[in-house]
Design a protein around this nucleic acid. Structure first.
Lengths: 237, 237
DNA sequence: CGCGCCTTTGACACGCGTCAAAGAGAGTGG
DNA sequence: CCACTCTCTTTGACGCGTGTCAAAGGCGCG
């Protein structure tokens, strides 16, 4: 693990300018609350492959992803890794019961987050049930994704996993920017493998197989869906 | 799927008598609130293998499990099944974003639940942020379990899956009743297989293998951990 | 007793993991 | 600008773990 290269901006940022303002946890706040909320968070940058927190760390902050892509993962004692999710702008990290993050989070590309001290955030939320409701919504949505992913991990073949991943990732990207048949994949093959419960070789072979069939095209930094309908058929719902 | 055999008790139950009162979502309510809450829920019984709801159903109720064991699962179009969890007394079901349950729930043994109409429950919670906080806690705990289970499904061998399952199930039972090295398994081998992302044959063979090694003993309706330390070693953390 | 369902056991097959090596870019220094 | 290295990806050969298919228990229930 590389040392986390972190830059903390002095200040001077406003929630009203924030790119994820309407998507993130803060969408539940009214303008007056936003001005107060502004003082709680500070922007923090992580360089690519920097670590925001590790699974055994005590939780001292919450994070709102503003920009970039993060990898959320857990390790077994012998080093086997499972990526439990990718975090994109608008995602909120740090909720837990145990007082520890139960997964590690690091930057796949350069990442900007809005960081909140746990205590101050806790105090703020105390009197804002609508913010709590918003956080609850995000948690429940995550839970639903987690259950979908369990089905993928437990019951799908390698081909289905890869096809479902490509569609799911395209879906997430399109909910951020414009939708497109060109899907950018900022994560490595190893990351994809660890997300899908496969080996890197199987992921690579499956990509190649799909390309040979003319279903996708492997391009630099991603893939292009030449035949989206076929990919959906392969994903088996 | 068998028809859901359901019995609804006329009334006459009180939260103050409730077995899960301190463990469930209602632990956040004070005595006065409990008396009001009492009128919102009604006890419903499901016979073994009865269905409480299916994944495509519109959510009209929330459920608080009072007694018994439920199986929460999702199906792929071709019939492959993944069990995403087992619900025990104290578990709260029905939270979702989409307006639909995204998994099915049915009774493994006779089950009693406390059922709440969605609208009435929503109104009640509106003015009780502490209840919302409690629900949020339960959701976050579920999410943490879901992520642990992803690691199991994606990265563990059959032996490790079975060993981890036995320990995890014992853990859950012991948090309800007294802890013991005798672990009751009310679910079928098929259920265990669908929970662990294995086939019934592999589960059966793994049980037999563990028994031959003297690590467990297969008894009627469960297993006995003869050598818990060995099981923990097999589970690989 | 006999029927039906669940579990166990066995033989075999195959998908995916493992091991190994070659290819392909990106960054660095001469 | 090219050679060199490092890392990531791709490809190939092979083997194993787990799935598949089939049949024989085992147990409850009518």
């Amino acid at each position: 693990m590389k040392p986390s290269v972190v830059t903390i901006e002095p200040n001077g940022h406003f929630c009203s300018d924030c790119a994820v303002r309407d998507a993130a946890v803060c969408s539940s706040l009214d303008p007056a609350e936003l001005r107060e909320f502004e003082h709680l968070g500070r922007r923090v940058h992580f360089a690519a492959s920097g670590t925001a927190f590790s699974e055994e760390d005590i939780t001292t902050s919450f994070y709102n992803v503003l920009e970039g892509v993060m990898r959320l993962h857990k390790l077994l004692p012998d080093g086997r890794r499972q990526i439990v999710g990718f975090a994109l702008p608008g995602d909120f990290l740090g909720m837990n019961i145990s007082g520890r993050h139960n997964f590690s989070a690091d930057a796949i590309v350069a990442v900007t987050v809005c960081q909140f001290a746990k205590a101050a955030f806790g105090r703020f939320i105390e009197t804002r049930p609508h913010l709590l409701r918003r956080i609850n919504e995000l948690a429940i949505r995550e839970l639903s994704h987690a259950r979908d992913h369990m089905v993928l991990l437990g019951r799908r073949s390698a081909d289905e996993k890869v096809a479902a991943f490509l569609l799911g990732w395209r879906e997430r990207l399109s909910s951020l920017g414009g939708s497109s048949d060109t899907v950018s994949l900022p994560m490595s093959r190893q990351d994809i493998a660890d997300y899908l419960g496969l080996t890197i070789e199987t992921v690579s072979r499956t990509f190649t197989k799909l390309e040979r069939r003319g279903v996708i095209e492997i391009i630099h930094g991603g893939i292009s869906l030449l035949d989206p309908a076929q990919v959906e058929a392969l994903a088996a719902a």
